[in-house]
Amino acid sequence: MHAMTVALVLAMTGILLVPANAASAESVNLYSARKEALVRPLLDAFTEASGTEVRLVTAKGGQLHQRLLAEGENSPADVLLTVDAGNLWRAAEAGLLRAVNSAYLDATVPATYRDPDGRWYGLSLRARAVVYATERVSGTDLADHLDGYLELADPVWRGRVAVRSSNSIYNQSLIAAVIANYGPEVAERWAHGLVENFARPPSGGDRDQIRAVVSGEADLSIVNSYYYAVLLGSNEADWMAGTAIYFPADAQMGAHVNVSGAGVTRHAPHPDAALALIEFLASPEAQSLYAELNHEFPVHPDVAPSGVVAEWGSITTDDIPVVQFGRLNPDAVRIADRAGWN
């Protein structure tokens, strides 16, 4: 892009303004794509343990990315916290994150769930699962027609599958994982078949897909596991009776697991405090909070998931490193466009 264009974008968006107190000592500045309600308890625990204050900016992932790009070396941000390996990979590719050396993180976070170059680390795990109506999808239907994700394109599911738009990075990463496991041709055919099976044009978020199954508009939905767990743990649990969760797996590919994660920004004013924050988020104390707050799977191997999640039993997971979802993202989005998955 022209330097002139960049300069104009910067001037226009007016985000060169940096908080005057951004450089004070006992604090760390966090840009978070996760909602404050999910992040704040973790940050409070960190402040209590370390004495370091955390200043929080929340926005959508893409907006934080553009903001970091525009702020450049003047950015007050120390840590970028976001969901989906695709977003973390993009931030690393754009040079927004720095490599860190942390024996603790390398020992705690499995290699599958972090950047090989140490620029970001997964901090919680979520599976993209199938929530289905037990009345309309029998055990034999499942056994005969749904092992792995590929079979979601089986004609037996014609007009029965609810899933959100491919604008969602969750779906882009799922397509990327299918590409990584089966190759681009199979992924392309799969996407076309899946679109044929849609119960309705994609709209709404993951919760809306579960609603579609409960109401009878669809028989299967593709959603992140914690949405289902959160609903089960809420006062809407009765309303959810008649649904169950299934984690697709065949010989080639287990359940598609993605991360939420964080990295230290390239121009972090407080890199040490930033790393301390990320290490804290991977500690058993914070990992338990993650598990309870939003029913995600802990990334720390020794921390137990929440009660609701534990009831699902052990899950066969895909072993493709999540960094691949980022690398294959452009291919995945194009496949979605060609398949007519809006």
């Binding site: 893409g62 907006q63 553009q66 993009r90 604008n167 882009q172 452009p330 989005v333």
Partner: peptide, 13 residues
């Protein structure tokens, strides 16, 4: 929505 997807999704300004 297409502009948004091209910019934030594909990263292609």
């Amino acid at each position: 929505t297409g502009i948004y997807r091209a910019w934030f999704g594909f990263g292609d300004v």
